[in-house]
Design a protein around this nucleic acid. Sequence first.
RNA 1: GGACGCUUAGCUCAGUUGGGAGAGCACCUGCUUGACGUGCAGGGGGUCAGGGGUUCGAGUCCCUUAGCGUCCACCA
Length: 860
Amino acid sequence: MKRQLESKYNPKQVEENAYQKWVSEGYFTAGDQSKIPYTIVIPPPNVTGKLHLGHAWDTALQDIIARFKRMQGFDMLWLPGMDHAGIATQAKVDARLKEQGISRYDLGREKFLDKAWEWKHEYASHIREQWAKLGLSLDYTRERFTLDEGLNQAVNKVFVDLYNDGLIYQGERIINWDPQAKTALSNIEVIHKEIEGAFYTFKYTVVGSDEILKVSTTRPETMFGDVCVFVHPDDPRYQHLIGKQVINPANHQVLPILADDYIDIEFGTGAMKCTPAHDPNDFNLSEKYNLDKIICMHPDGTMNELAGEFNGLDRFDCRKKLVKRIESEGNLEKIEKHIHQVGHSERTDAIVEPYLSKQWFVKMKPLAQAVLDAQKTEDRIDFIPDRFEGIFNHWMENIEDWCISRQLWWGHRIPVWYHKETGVAYVNTVAPSDIENYTQDEDVLDTWFSSALWPFSTLGWPEKTADFERYYPTDVLVTGYDIIFFWAARMAFQARYFTKTVPFKKALIHGLIRDSEGRKMSKSLGNGVDPMEVIDTYGADALRFFLTTNSAPGLDLRYSTEKVEAAWNFINKLWNASRFVLMNVPEDFNETPLNECTLSSIDHWILERFDDNLEKITQAMEKFDFALAGSFLYEFVWDDYCSWYIELSKSNLNSDNPEVVKGTVNTLIVVLKGILKLCHPTMPFVSETIYASLSDEPLCLSQWPTVFGYNDQKAHHDVASLISIISEIRSIRTEYNVKPSIPLNVKLSYSLDKIYQDSLLKMVKTECVDTLEGELITRSILNGTLQIERGQLVDKEAETARLNKEKIKLEAELKRSESMLANERFISSAPAHKVEEEKSKLSEYQRQYALVLEELAKLV
RNA sequence: GGACGCUUAGCUCAGUUGGGAGAGCACCUGCUUGACGUGCAGGGGGUCAGGGGUUCGAGUCCCUUAGCGUCCACCA
């Protein structure tokens, strides 16, 4: 054996050097053509900052799958990469420049981009360090970045093809405008928050009469962009006004009164002002009636010259002041509290302004429909848990066109050039040859436009590369439910259109990580937990075990220090069990195949228990049910291997018979190796370190275990009985308050092998005898009875109480069981094995009940 | 306005196809030399949110009510 382990598991020591070796030896580099490929692409983290616990969770799940599949003999490719995160990164770089007193406009586009790339390189290396700390088995030879040259080619091709196919168009439409970032946003980048605002009702004087038309709005500042007032054609209150004009109280201009049945008679006053350039519904009406579209704000959210005296004022300041002025003019009817949903920018949290603007859009209906159709075939994405497919489908069914242009510098620039003289657009993957006559579109594409291509662009598409041919489509996507729409759905339709298949065959969807009180972790609350700090204290293995075994599929996970500690304790248990094994292996030990060893019953027993758990764990892993796999593993290691097998093995290890020693030593080792393999996907560092003491091969490249195939009924029976005896004696000691140091004699209803009598003596200081003296106490054990002399156990009162309690419990069970078996419907309709099971339970209860009555009678 | 999720032991949560309620932590009692006190052994604690239904049998399936949470939705 190579070395002994320290008495305490020290994650720092264990995790320090392993990763560098794994990577430098190329263990994670895919490409073995003799194996079946299995592919995962990492959801690329943004290069905006440090990885948080959510990343740790998401990537730990992927690493478990990757290591599991690698051990199962697949050519595992787990492709790493990062996302340029347009708005977020640009904002960070802006902020950094601001600290230096510079604005991006001072620098200009080119120099600003240099700064952004500097930022990217800096943060990319932080992220790689964090991946290393987490122990992720990534193939760095294939690492990509969403703004890579290769990915840019993919982006350009997709843009140009969709354009040529009529699925990308440029249009003047109402989009969501972020006045802080000064860019357009897509619909899903807008977070609707419920806000208590005001509902202002103003008096509009009808031209040529004294009549007043009352009109309400939540956004008075947009009145400078109003073009008319709408009423319902059937509204009796207003029918006589249709075709007349009113005075806009904001700017005193004349507005026509039009009628359309879009208007809800019940809502507000039933008269609606129409602001086509600042409201999507109004915009639609303006198209229908060919109305002007008047923009009354600057891109930064301040009012423009149309607002007159309010020119240059922020839109919300303008709102207040305008209302005051209208009130002073006597045209304010009332202000009511109004709770409504207001859109906020996902990135900057600024209130989004619906804003008329010329942008690029993807026509979504046909793309989405193709995905929906495919979901009904075999060539579909399988969601786990499957309820997320419903959410995914619903989104696809109700999708609207996607605004993809962003007024940013950091991103894929739109591959469109305009002729300087004619203005004619040149749309191509490469710049026109007479570039001097053209200017390129200033805008970049939504970050998610490039992320949507990630599973295939990273493999070399649109080139027919060997990697693309071999590893695409990918096998599983692991991501949180919060980005199904942003990312998963978009990958689905781009992949469907361009690669004619799914981007990933399965989507494993997990929840969000929350703090110990169930709140979402966020910067503003300051309740975020840094995974690197957790790793410093407890190690990556403990963090990974906690993250992956403590939640049900698709549900949120609450962070809990106690549970990370519990994970640490488990690893320490494994560590010390390994230490025990190593301490009992002779210096010059050479492993002997089990089939050349003489195995005792306990050896058979643990091998069978291993097989049983191996099958359950493997099955759970295949279903990505890591919580279930984790609990099987935990119980097997702690209870079966440590509490029973190691304890029982001590007698064998002390045996005079070298064959018995040899059999048990080999079994201890071989089962431990199996355990380490089962642990490896979840706890790669500690398992690899311990394994190195037992083997020369790297654990991460070893084969997933196969069953030992031991299934000896007698051994199973003997050990189960022994366990039952030991448990019963432990209970007796507690019940009668007999200290472990006081020896007991027992008489069993069957004979126990010498070596297990030895275990009994060792573990519960109890000797088996043939004859006992005086009054006896009899207790049920598995397949028999156990007797002890009353003399040692004096507390009759306590025993009576215990027996009565036992009696009541058994009576209840008997009643339940008997009535079940007396029920003809049960006998006839329940499966035969259930009936048999119940019958054997009943007879066991009857046996125990008789014994309890007997014992009670003795006490009277 | 739709849709989904959650409600199980003091706390945090598991409970795969319906067939005798579980884990970790916390709590109580007892254990101090050889793997581990970061441990060992034993124990207490739940009318599975309420109501109704299907079934021989429901934490599990169906309906319904309540509370909490999330997502989607252009009502001025």
